[in-house]
């Protein structure tokens, strides 16, 4: 139980640590029971009243499972495929093929790193243009072999660096949106953790969009919004509230189709259960989508995004 915990997680972690310590001792069953009830109550109180910034913190939790943690728990035959065939292989994007319960699928996902070395190698999950182009290459191959596409979003944004600009960050994102609009196979989008801005939407156009319970999805990071609007990046909490970025917010706004439940306390509390929930959502959604005739699927996909927006006629 060592390592990094969020402020609001600490009381629970401490209680649970106490319970663990007592477990080895004799004649403390009653005390353990009492502490367990207390912990449950505390959890319920904390997790049923999370504010939007706390959701952001959970979505960015250093222990949160990433696609490469979840995939082995969902499939036995994931084959990772590399490179955009144009410039390079972007480790911030993981792509490949697999079967999940009989569904042959292509996977396109954003991957942060766990330790410092991997974080740097994967550029903290911020793709360069070649990452988006790798994603598109795999999606086009998926169309060729009639594989539905599952995308998993977890990114602080597209990489805001000079080299990314030189190689056409804008063009890469725009082209993905353009191509995904008419890609002739089902596309399921899952926001796993952080869904920030253009880097997220670049693999976010699909027939169904699902969000994990504690993920967030936003036009800009709360810090970015605060620093632009109020010239004060420490107003991130206010920005998170104003931007309305939780799974529940987006469901209410009609942007996403459904919410994938997470274990109590967040996905990082139980990777297996998280993987199970994600897997269940994938199978259920692909069952639905694969029965739709292709033409209807594509018409509905464009219709879905056509309807998004608030306009006073």
């Amino acid at each position: 139980m060592n390592g990094i915990w969020l402020d609001f997680e600490r009381p629970i972690v401490e209680l649970e640590r106490k319970i663990e310590e007592l477990k080895g001792l004799q004649g403390v069953e009653e005390e353990i029971q009492r502490l367990k009830t207390q912990a449950e109550k505390l959890k319920k109180r904390i997790y049923s009243n999370l504010n939007r910034w706390q959701h952001v913190q959970l979505a960015r939790h250093p222990r949160r499972p990433y696609p490469l943690d979840l995939l082995p728990l969902m499939t036995q035959d994931f084959v990772e495929l590399h490179g955009d065939r144009r410039f390079g292989d972007d480790p911030a994007v993981v792509a490949g093929i697999a079967t999940i319960d009989g569904h042959r699928i292509a996977i396109v996902a954003q991957q942060k790193g766990r330790d410092t070395k991997e974080k740097i190698r994967r550029n903290f999950g911020m793709p360069h243009p070649e990452g988006f182009r790798k994603a598109l290459r795999i999606m086009k191959m998926a169309a060729k072999f009639s594989l539905p596409v599952v995308t998993m979003i977890d990114t602080p944004g597209a990489y805001p660096g000079a080299d990314a600009e030189e190689r056409g960050q804008s063009e890469a994102i725009a082209t993905n949106l353009f191509e995904c609009a008419t890609l002739p196979v089902p596309i399921l989008v899952i926001i796993l953790g952080e869904g920030a801005s253009g880097g997220a939407i670049a693999i976010g156009l699909g027939d169904r969009v699902l969000m994990c319970e504690n993920s967030f999805y936003s036009v800009i990071s709360p810090e970015g919004c605060a620093s632009i609007l109020w010239r004060d990046s420490s107003k991130n909490k206010e920005a998170a509230e104003a931007l309305k970025i939780t799974a529940q917010d987006l469901k209410t706004l009609g942007i996403i189709d459904d919410i994938i439940p997470e274990p109590v306390g967040g996905a990082h509390m139980d990777f297996k259960l998280t993987a199970q929930n994600v897997k269940k959502a994938i199978i259920q959604t692909l069952d639905e989508l694969s029965s739709e005739p292709q033409e209807e699927l594509l018409t509905r996909r464009v219709e879905k995004f056509r309807k998004m927006g608030a306009v006073n006629e």
Binding site: L177, I201, L205, V219, I245, D249, L253, I255, M308
Partner: peptide, 11 residues
Amino acid sequence: EGILSLMQMAK
């Protein structure tokens, strides 16, 4: 307009 603005890119 938050996420609604982001969706205009897709639209």
